[in-house]
């Protein structure tokens, strides 16, 4: 999983580095799709098929595996 360290408030946090993973696709993606990608990655879903689907979403046959995480 590609993640990055950030300073957030008084502490550091680790977040998934969506801008690096999605690259140029990010700017074109609605936030709802960016969020589905984040969830898919954090749940261990395959990244490459997801990236292909984000480049050509229509009828890609790709399926997100969505699951909330409770802490």
């Amino acid at each position: 999983m590609k993640h990055m360290s950030i300073n957030a408030g008084e502490t550091g946090l680790q977040v998934i580095n969506l801008p690096e993973i999605l690259g140029k696709s990010l700017a074109n993606l609605p936030t709802v799709l960016r969020l589905l990608c984040e969830n898919h990655i954090r749940n261990g879903g395959a990244v490459e098929p997801m990236l292909d689907a984000m480049r050509t979403p229509a009828d890609s046959g790709f399926e997100f595996f969505f699951c909330p995480i409770g802490y």
Binding site: A8, L13, L18, P30
Partner: peptide, 27 residues
Amino acid sequence: ATLCARIEPAFRAMGLWFDPDATPAFD
């Protein structure tokens, strides 16, 4: 306050912070 302070930097870093000028490609 801790939670509130974390949100903007975290969402900006993930590319999820709202930009009113952005024009995503919707269907």
